[in-house]
């Protein structure tokens, strides 16, 4: 909790986000057919999914901690990290849809990677519905913590294993389709890509931390 009130990592988040925006638009990128300038989406679309995974992993760890400690703060943390993770995931779907329209020709294609990403997001939306449907605080905490652990366990194969096993996929790095692996190898893309992941993730943690602190205050007021 003390970490949430420190400002150095928030300053780092601001610096990295600006570096991503400016460097991501101006720095040299490989000139590849079909992709053209859209290759820069690597810094904005792909990083959304990476940040989402880090935020949802944090949420799952907090859920495990809650089951061990029964500390309501861990439950609030798990909930808010899941919320911002879901938010990043929806942004990932939306930006991916735009990118698909201009490189593959359709807003949505029946692709193993896209469909399993959509299923993954639906599983997490159900988490939010589940939370709001239980009145009792302790029951809510326990059931949603267990669900959250299973949701993350389902998301990993959905995003990283099943699409890779598919016969065909348009999406880079999946179904034997080369692409993301190649970008990853390129050092010029990497010097923006990795800081971008850290920057967006820190921004997500910042937003989650504000919501956690607000909910803590509300709890305190309600106690009085």
């Amino acid at each position: 909790m003390k970490f949430f009130k420190k400002s150095w990592w928030k300053i780092l988040a601001i610096i990295l986000v600006f570096y991503t925006l400016i460097g991501g638009l101006l720095m040299d990128v490989p000139r590849l057919a079909i992709l053209n300038e859209t290759i820069r989406n690597l810094y904005f679309h792909v990083t959304m999914w990476f940040s989402m995974m880090i935020l949802l992993l944090t949420s799952m760890i907090l859920s495990i901690k809650y089951l061990k400690s029964r500390n309501p703060l861990h439950d609030i943390g798990a909930c808010e990290f899941a919320n911002i993770g879901i938010h990043f995931g929806i942004l990932g779907l939306a930006t991916g849809s735009i990118w698909a329209k201009f490189t593959w020709g359709a807003w949505w294609v029946n692709d193993p990677q896209l469909n399993s990403a959509a299923i993954g997001m639906l599983i997490y939306l159900a988490y939010a519905v589940l939370r709001s449907s239980i009145e009792d605080e302790q029951k809510k905490g326990t059931i949603s913590a267990v669900y959250n652990i299973f949701a993350f366990a389902a998301l990993v194969p959905l995003l990283f294993v099943l699409p890779r096993m598919a016969e065909n996929s348009l999406h880079p790095g999946k179904g034997g389709n080369p692409g993301f692996n190649a970008y990853d190898l390129d050092s010029k893309l990497r010097i923006v890509f990795y800081p971008a992941i850290i920057g967006w993730t820190l921004l997500g943690i910042w937003i989650a931390s504000l919501r956690i602190r607000t909910r803590k205050l509300i709890n305190k007021i309600e106690e009085v």
């Binding site: 000139r31 692409g179 190649a182």
Partner: peptide, 29 residues
């Protein structure tokens, strides 16, 4: 599963220096 993972790893197309100077691909020059 392990087999399929190593399968995709071999399909990588490397980005070369020529890709940065390739004038045939249209960019926002």
């Amino acid at each position: 599963m392990l087999f399929s993972l190593s399968g995709t790893a071999q399909d990588k197309i490397e980005i070369t220096k020529d890709d940065y100077t390739n004038q045939e691909v249209e960019m926002a020059d």
